[in-house]
Amino acid sequence: MKLFLQRHFGAWATGPTAVKIMAFGVIGLGNTVIDLAVFTFGYQVLGLPLVPANVLAWLIAVSGSYVMNTMVTFRAESGRVLRRKDYFRFVASGILGVIATTTTLVVLSNFIPVYAAKLASILAGFIVNFTMSHFVVFRPKPPTGIMD
């Protein structure tokens, strides 16, 4: 299996990046439960339309995601320190994820049941959010010699 992954996805698929993807995924599962619960509450109980229900669910889940990914997935890059600027950068980069999830949800809900579309939208968001977190929000900072 390791040889297959290396051959088809490069060394990153079996190295530290693969571990980060798995940690990000596990944390994402917890956030998915929160996202789905808030979405269901907003959509079914409050009667919100799809887009506001989805955005509300994202806004609540994103804070937990930031904390857990700072402490676990990107602990080396973040030093396990919660920073306001990193949180806002995480939220700002997550806007691409919410655009991806909302677009996927709205488009697919025309062809498949809403909750199947919601699950597909979560997968689209996972791809966008990991990419942004890995390459933008928590990228290793070059040593400057100055205390942060």
Rank of each mutant, 00 (worst) to 15 (best):
P52A: 12
K141L: 13
M22F: 15
T32G: 15
M132R: 03
F9P: 11
F90K: 04
A53W: 03
V136T: 10
L3D: 13
N110C: 13
I99W: 07
S133R: 01
I34P: 00
L3S: 14
V33R: 03
M71R: 06
R89W: 00
H8Y: 15
F9A: 14
F90E: 04
Y87W: 08
I146G: 03
A100Y: 06
N69D: 02
Q44K: 13
G42E: 06
F24Y: 10
G97S: 08
M132C: 15
A76R: 13
M22H: 09
M22R: 11
M68Q: 07
G145K: 09
K141H: 10
G79R: 05
Q6F: 09
G79T: 05
R75Y: 09
I146R: 15
L5K: 09
V55M: 11
A11K: 14
N69F: 08
A117K: 13
F41G: 11
I146D: 12
L46I: 08
V107F: 12
F90Y: 15
I112P: 00
F135L: 14
S93C: 15
F74V: 02
A13V: 01
V19N: 03
Q44A: 13
T17K: 14
F39R: 01
D86Y: 03
F74R: 00
L48D: 09
L108Y: 07
D86K: 05
L108I: 03
V67H: 05
K141N: 08
G94M: 01
Q6A: 09
V106M: 13
M22P: 02
K20P: 09
